[in-house]
Structures are given as C-alpha cells and as structure tokens.
Design a protein around this nucleic acid. Structure first.
Length: 890
DNA sequence: ACTCTCACG
DNA sequence: ACGTACGTGAGAGTC
C-alpha cells in the first residue's frame, strides 16, 4: 500500500449536509436509544464505505469548517449571510461523525478562520507535489476548480452514494472551461447560496462566453475598452470591483496554515472493535451484522453473503428429489413484475430440508413429482407471498394446498407500518442480512431483468429461501408474544386464499358500454374545452394546475383563495368559492369531473380488460397501516358512486353469465357501531340497539332537542360530519372545514358531543394514554399499529399520532370484521352448494354475482354471515340489493 | 420522481 | 404560533 500513494480528501461538512438531507424523510426512523438523530451519521458511513472501496487510499483526511468567522467573512461581511441555520437535528450529529472517523482510524482536521475547502486545497497541493494521486469528495461543485491531471473531484449528486467524478477533461466537457477558470466564472456569476452577487445580469452562459474569449476576469478587464458598447459592457464596468472580490472569495486557498504532515494522514484501516462499539452506541444493527460476517481486514467492504450450494434443476434431477411429509420445504416463484395475473415466470427456487435447488424452467413444476409435492396437503410449504404464489401457480394448473409460513404476511402483522414487499428489505428489518434485495440483483424500473448468469440468479433464489426458512421461528415467536397467532391462522392466512379466488374469478366488464361512454364524453369534453378557451380568451392546457392558475388568478384576476407549495391551488373547494364570479368556473368544474371519468375510469378500465372480458384486480393485503385491503391494477375500490354522472360507470360492471345478477351487501355504520362497542358508551349503544337514525340521534344531542321531529336536514348533515370527525380522531379545524363553520362553532359541537357521549370521551383519552405507554394501538383481533410519534415534541407529528390512535382501532376493527365475514362467506356459499361467487370487497361492502335463481337465497344468507361475523355489544346491520349491473344494486 | 387533483370507504 | 381531519390508488403535468 505504501507504494501506492493515494490521498483521499473529504469535505466533512458538505458530505454531512448531503447525507442529512438525503435521508431527511427518514429522520424519525434514525434515532438511537438516547434520542440522538443518526441519519447523517448513517449516510456519512455509507458514503465513506463507497469511496474507500472505490479508491483504496493510503492516506485519508476529512476536513471540517471551524466556525462562522473566516478570513472570507472578515473581507466581505455578507459572505454566507442569509443562510438558514443548520438544523439542530444535524448539528447534534457532527461530534458523532467525528467519533465515526476515529473508529475508522481516519484523521480529521479543522482550522480556525478557514473553511474545509481551503484545508483540502492546501493538502491536495502538498500531496500532489509529493507524488500522490488525489481524490476529493464533496457535495460542492465549486471544488472542481481543484481538478488536475493528478486530482479528481468526486461530487455527490443524488442520495449518498451516487457521485459524479470530475477530471480536467470532464470539467471542460461540462462547462467548456478549464478547471482554473471556475473561479473566474464564479466571480462573474456570483453565488446566491454563499450570498455574493457577482456582476449584474451575468449568468453561467454569458460568463462562459466571455471566458472563452478572454480567458480570465483579468483578461476581460484588460480588453474592456475594445468591447462594443452594450448593457453587458456597462454592467461589467460598474461591477469591476465586485467581480475581482467575488473571484477572490471563490478561490480556494492552497497555502492555508495547515499544521499537518502527509504522514499524519496515513490510514491504517479501521479497527473492528472500535467500529463495533460505535455502531452499538448508534444502534446501527445492520452495520453490526455486516461486521460480524466480514473478515477482519475488510471491515468496510459492505455486505458479504454466505456461500450456498445450489443445484440447478432439470428433469432428471427432479426425478431424484428426496423428501417426505416431515420435510421442511420452502418455495419461491420468481416473476417478471408485480402483476402475477399476467407476469412472465422467471423461474423458481426450492429448499428441501437443507438442500437448495433452482431453475429458470417453470415447466418442471408440471412434472408429477413436483406437482404432487406442492399439492400434497400433508406437506407444509413456506413462502414469501402466499397469495402471489398461489395465483401464479394456479395459472399453470398447480394448486398449493398447505401454505404454512408466509413471510410477507407475518411480517406485516408484526408491524403494519413496515410494508416493504421486497424480501431483502423486509429481512433487514428483522435483523437478517444474508440476502440481497431484488433491486440489487435485478435492477429497478425498466432496467429490471433476470440475471444472465445462473450462479448469481440461483444463489439469490437460494438466499431468499434461506431467509424464509430462518426467519420462520423468530417471527412466529414474535407473533405469539403479540397474541397475534389467531389473527394470522384464523384470519389473514385463510383470507389470502379467499382473495386469491376473488382475483382469479374477476368481474366482467361491458366493453361496449364503456366505448359508448367514451365517445359521448369525448364530444362533451371538446365542447367544454371550446367554451373555456373562449372565456379565457386563449388556448391552454386545462389539465395543468399551473397554466390554469395563471389564467384564473393572473389573466382573469380572480381572488386567490388558497396556495399550494408550488403555486395557486385550483382544487374543487377553491373553485366552489369562485363560482359566480366568472362563468368559466362552472365549465372548468364540469370539465374536471368529466376528464376524470374519461381518463381514470372509462379509458383506465378499457386498458385492463383481460382476454376473458373481465378485470382481475389485485388486493394488497399487506399495505395499509390499519388493516384494510387496498386494490390495484385496477383499483376497484374507488369506482364512482356519489355523483350520478360517475355512478353510471357502474353500468359497465356486469355478471359473467346470462341470467345472472349482481348482488351487493354493505354494513351500515360499521365504524360507529365498532366505536359504540369499544367505547362502551351507553347512549351510543342504546341508539344502535333501538335502530335509531344515528346521525339524527347525534343531532338531537348536540343541538339539545327532545324529539326526532325537531331535527332539520341541516342539523343532521352537521351531526353526520361530527360523527365522521369522531371516527377520524377529532380536531376542531377539520370539522369546521367539513361543515363550513367557524372553528369556534366546531369546537362547541365537539365539546357538546363529548359531554353527551361520555364513554366516547373517555375512550379517546384512554386510547391516547395507552398508546403513549405501550407505543402501539390494537384492533379487536389484535392487529397492531405502532405510533412512535405519539411522544414527539413536534406538535404536528404528535397530534397526527393521537388522531391515528383514536382512528386505527375503529377503522382496523371494522376491517377485521369484514375479513372474518369473507372467510365465513366463502365456506357458506360452498356449504349451501351455490354457484354464486364473491367478486369484490369495498371496505364495508361485498359484491357478488349469482344466477338469478339464487338471489333470494343470498338475500338471507349474506346478511346472516356478515352480521354474525363477530359478536359485539351492539347489533351489526347489513343492507342488500341486486340488479342486472353493479349500477342497479342501490 | 414528485405534485396536484380527485375517485372511493 | 402552528397547521391538521382517517385510510387508500391513478392520471396528468412538471422537472
């Protein structure tokens, strides 16, 4: 190493800033046991590993800024003025970043009155002279002025490990300037982030043009007399002083009084025990695990996976497979993309006891030996995503009969907020590191592809199988500790197969109906478009909030009601307020409504109709924080219903056989009933037992009426909003917004409500207190949601967590109940020998198709199953309807 | 990739 | 003094 003289110089402040902001959205996830934020430290460590791995330096120095006062601020008072203060979450991390460097055995240095740049410039010059190759790492492009044939500047561009390397040639390519001219450019253009102005009206383009002709700022001014009279010449003349001053500010010193010899920067390598101690202090579990699996002299080389023996399967090998009913079997089917209804099969991996097998040849699954293995009800198969595996295998005629451990599903139940669906990422969250993520092996987005190399591909499959198998005991134990075994065995796992069946069945879509709607909408849209253009006096893109904002608020001078982060808000509630001020508003609202129906529903649905004339959604069972399902590709849980125009989309959802009908049942007020049950509020419970109109009942209480006949439509509407507010976790602001009252009025409603329903009031207080103590809230069936923010000092985060604490047990228990109903339903339909099929779930309703002759039986059976799914202290109520299309089930 | 808007419970 | 209703997915525009 001594032969190989390589100097690595790191701009510590700049890299720490980059790391901090790159991981800013995860700020609250990176907190150690002392409450210290660690995101910048974590990111710094990743960057360090990357660059140490790339460069293999013999010498390393990390330079830091010493403080606010520097020779530059002394010369130019406003230098770096106006910069926002470093967030405390970051500044508290600096001392620990230095500890991290100590643990790595890396020298760090700062110098009063000088910036990190100058230390780097000085050391780079020294090192070059002594024959070193120099690499500089920074997030600041200005340092590219230091590139030479011996010095490369690596600038972090995105995240923490993505860098762009500047050599002199790259600088020339990028700017059309020599590295030494960077300071001349900065002198002319100034730097707004450092708060020095440069020459008026001169930006990068002009500066580059000038420097190409005159080489330096000095060159420009030597020749300025000869320049043609122009605004530019005038500006240059006026700002002459400034130009030279700014150039001076931008120039990195190469002669700072750095009291450090090159020998002192020699890097001996990291000491494992020091790193271990530091990582433990920071709670960096993944780095600890990496350290433990890596060899002693290679502590910064990143993750190293265990070596697995994988046998490539072929027909002959399949015949020779050995297993029995007691074998420990894991199976992983690899697909080309998320949509398992249509994805290509990339191959599969199989673990039998301690032997790993893998292949690209999915046809092998059809061989009797493998088919029987997977379909044997006595053999337990462990998987990563049971529903995906089941549905995909069903496409080739194989039906899994005994899914045992479903890693994805169990992991979700343990923590509904951790909902990655990548095996590698998910394993890491359970402190298991012996597997890569799919992104690491296959690439992401359009770059995702199956590896060409069998060894890489098969080993990845084997590592996934190993993870499934090795995480089983640990996760099942946690499930038991959380009292969640019933939730898994009795609800989620059986439900996954019910959902699989619903997805496979799919729902028939009347393509012709949609085609007709499409042409009708098209015509009406172009009429509206013309009217809007006329009223605006010009053509523009109505779908662009930005362009629409300019038309409404600048050209037509309508008053600005609300702003978004990026400009004017043009959302419905804003437009509603502008109604009557200009006829354009009504047309825009109509256009919006129609455009939404056209693009999302008519055209969106047409795009996903499969060859069988049906759409096959996928229910995401492991995504929502509350336990609800979600539906994708297409989303069948948000088909329009509230407005008549949109509701007509439902005419396109039809039975898949002639003489069949659509049948739908929904729970009435399930969330408020759940609230009545868990809050034990006597008034609310009584209202449900007496089957009162619950919103009218609330109206009577908050308006102090004695008789239902006194409740006006408006009172009921407001009471309904109050009930919603209660379910969502009440706030006066939100309620005021929803009923269009003042905040004060909303607050009074809330207070009266809580006084009239003391059980609810007590529940709200108790659940928040319990969440604070336990760190989580639970549903009726022990579904858990962790709420770390409930203790946050940040008011917004804390308030949000409190509302979530109130809402999640309600929304989540309602989700539990319908899940139980669905499982019972599938069995009941089978037991009754009905042909009826359950097709869709929309949170509190179930949609079926059935022969007309079965409808009367469903009218009995479905409500019976739904309201007996669970025994609450209030009755559950179910309402049903049927018709020729989904539209008619109202 | 992010923002805005809007569809549902 | 601050800035929110709870839970989702999709399309279009913008950068």
């Amino acid at each position: 190493m001594a032969e190989d003289k390589k100097m690595l110089l790191v701009d510590g402040n700049s890299v720490a800033f980059r790391a901090f902001f790159a991981l800013h959205n995860q700020l609250e996830r990176f907190v150690n046991h002392d409450g210290l934020h660690t995101n910048a430290i974590y990111g710094f460590k990743l960057m360090l590993d990357k660059i140490l791995g790339d460069v293999s330096p013999s010498n390393v120095l990390v330079a830091f800024d010493a403080g606010k006062v520097t020779f530059r601020t002394k010369a130019y008072a406003d230098y770096k003025g106006g910069r926002s203060k470093t967030p405390t979450e970051l500044s508290e991390q600096f001392p620990h970043i230095k500890e991290l460097l100590d643990a790595y055995g890396i020298k760090h240095y700062e110098l009063p009155e000088y910036e990190a740049d100058d230390i780097i410039g000085t050391m780079a010059a020294k090192a070059e002279k002594a024959g070193y190759q120099v690499t500089i790492v920074t997030g600041d492009r200005d340092l590219t002025q230091l590139t030479t044939d011996k010095t490369t500047v690596a600038v972090t561009i995105k995240g923490v490990t993505e860098i762009e390397e500047y050599t002199p040639a790259h600088v020339v390519e990028k700017y059309g300037l020599q590295p030494a001219q960077i300071v001349d450019m900065k002198g002319l253009t100034g730097d707004s982030s450092d708060n020095y102005p440069g020459v008026t009206k001169v930006g990068e383009k002009t500066a580059i043009k000038l420097l190409k002709q005159y080489d330096t700022i000095e060159g420009i001014y030597e020749n300025i007399e000869a320049m043609k009279k122009s605004k530019l010449k005038e500006n240059l003349t006026n700002d002459r002083e400034l130009a030279f001053q700014c150039k001076d500010l931008a120039t990195i010193r190469k002669d700072a009084p750095v009291a450090l010899t090159l020998t002192e920067t020699t890097w001996p390598g990291a000491k494992k025990e020091d790193l271990l101690k530091f990582f433990e202090e920071m709670d960096f579990k993944s780095f600890i695990a990496q350290l433990q699996t890596s060899s002693a002299d290679d502590v910064s080389a990143g993750p190293t996976l265990s070596k697995l023996e994988v046998e490539a399967l072929d027909e002959a090998k399949v015949e020779k497979l050995v297993y029995d009913k007691a074998s420990d079997i894991s199976f992983y089917l690899e697909l080309s993309d998320d949509n398992y209804h249509t994805a290509d099969f990339w191959g599969f991996g199989l673990k039998i006891d301690d032997r790993y097998y893998a292949t690209r040849d999915v046809e092998l699954l059809k061989l009797p030996k493998l088919k029987q293995l997977l379909e044997d009800p006595a053999i337990q198969v462990d998987v990563f995503d049971g529903k995906q595996t089941y549905v995909a295998l069903k496409r080739i005629g194989i039906e899994l009969k005994n899914i045992n451990f479903d890693l994805l599903l169990v992991s979700y139940l343990l923590n509904t907020s951790d909902n990655s669906n990548d095996l590698g990422n998910l394993a890491k969250r359970h402190d298991y590191f012996d597997v890569l993520t799919d992104e690491e092996v296959y690439g992401k987005g359009s770059k995702r592809k199956v590896p060409v190399d069998d060894a890489i591909y098969f080993e990845h499959l084997a590592h996934k199988l190993k993870a499934i198998s090795e995480l089983e005991d640990k996760l099942m134990k946690e499930l038991a500790e959380n009292e969640q075994e019933d939730l898994y065995f009795e609800i989620e796992r059986p439900l996954s197969l019910v959902l699989a069946q619903m997805e496979i069945t799919g729902i028939k879509v009347d393509r012709e109906r949609l085609d007709i709607m499409q042409s009708e909408f098209k015509e009406r849209l172009s009429e509206l478009e013309q009217q809007i253009y006329n009223e605006a006096g010009e053509k523009f893109n109505i779908n662009s909030p930005k362009q629409l904002g300019v038309i409404l608020f600048e050209k037509l001078k309508l008053p600005v009601v609300k702003k978004t982060k990026t400009g004017y808000s043009t959302a419905v509630d804003v437009l509603e307020k502008l109604r009557g001020m200009s006829p354009i508003i009504d047309n825009i609202l109509a256009y919006r409504q129609l455009a939404k129906l056209q693009s999302t529903y008519v055209e969106g649905l047409l795009k996903v109709i499969a060859a069988d004339g049906k759409v096959h959604t996928r229910y995401t069972q492991t995504l929502t924080a509350t336990g609800r399902l979600s539906s994708v590709d297409p989303n069948l849980q948000n088909i329009p219903v509230r407005l008549e125009e949109g509701r007509k989309i439902r005419q396109a959802f039809v039975p898949s056989h002639p003489d069949w009908e659509i049948f739908a049942s929904d729970y009435s007020q399930i969330e408020l009933r759940v609230l009545a049950h868990i809050s034990k509020d006597p008034h609310m419970q009584q209202a449900f037992k007496d089957d009162f109109d619950i919103h009218a009942n609330t109206a009577m209480r908050i308006f102090g009426l004695d008789d239902p006949s006194q409740v006006t439509a408006n009172m009921r509407r407001q009471a309904k909003a109050v009930n919603f507010g209660i379910v969502y976790g009440i706030s006066d602001f939100g309620l005021a917004q929803s009923i269009g009252s003042t905040r004060k009025q909303a607050k009074e409603f809330m207070e009266t409500y809580l006084a009239s329903f003391p059980g609810v009031h007590e529940y709200m207080q108790d659940i928040i207190e319990s969440a604070r103590q336990k760190g989580y809230v639970e549903t009726l069936f022990h579904r858990r949601r962790y709420l770390p923010d409930i203790k946050s000092k940040n008011y917004n985060l804390r308030s949000f967590a409190e509302r979530t604490a109130m809402n999640t047990p309600i929304q989540g228990s309602a989700a539990d109940i319908i899940k139980v109903a669905m499982i019972n339903m599938q069995q009941a339909l089978k037991d009754a020998g009905l042909e009826a099929k359950m097709l869709l779930q929309v949170h509190d309703e179930l949609i079926f198709e059935a022969p007309k002759a079965e409808i009367s039986k469903l009218k009995e059976l479905v409500p019976k199953i739904m309201d007996s799914a669970v025994e609450l202290s209030v009755p559950l109520k179910v309402e049903s309807a049927s018709g020729k299309t989904w539209f008619e089930t109202k």
